[in-house]
């Protein structure tokens, strides 16, 4: 006989009221990404070239660096939510599902941190080879 209440038995098996939150954040980050990527594409097209000097010079401006940092956070947040849904849909074995989502979180945070730090380094003028 299982010494569990009916509530205890179902806990952790479903979205437990967080499904709508995930859905809502995916929409919210998509709208932010839409605005930031229109800015990004327009900025890329307006640069005189995509050479190292031009890109670094552009990212040193606060009005380029800050939207770029926001773009990184928004994009990685949005892609984490999206890839998680794909894993939840197609990885059926519970252990493998948990493992793949943990791995996804590690990759997303590592990638976002590397991109975020790179923009900060350029913005604060840390690139010695192109002073």
């Amino acid at each position: 006989m299982r010494m569990e209440t009916p509530l205890g038995r179902v806990r952790g098996l479903g979205s437990a009221r967080t499904g709508a939150h995930h859905w809502w954040l995916e929409r919210l980050t998509s709208i932010a990404a839409l605005v930031l990527f229109v800015w990004f594409i327009a900025s890329i097209l307006r640069l005189p070239s995509l050479s190292h000097g031009d890109v670094v010079g552009w990212l040193r401006e606060p009005l380029a660096a800050v939207p770029m940092l926001l773009l990184i956070v928004t994009t990685f947040w949005h892609l984490k939510l999206g890839l998680q849904v794909i894993l939840e849909d197609y990885v059926h074995e519970e252990g493998m599902k948990l493992f793949s989502i943990v791995l996804l979180n590690f990759f997303v945070i590592s990638g976002a941190a590397l991109a975020f730090f790179s923009v900060l380094k350029i913005a604060f003028g840390g690139d010695a080879s192109n002073g």
Partner: peptide, 14 residues
């Protein structure tokens, strides 16, 4: 995402 990270990290490295 990998291409974006590579592009930014390369620009920051030199």
């Amino acid at each position: 995402a990998a291409a974006l990270v590579w592009w930014l990290a390369a620009a920051a490295t030199g």
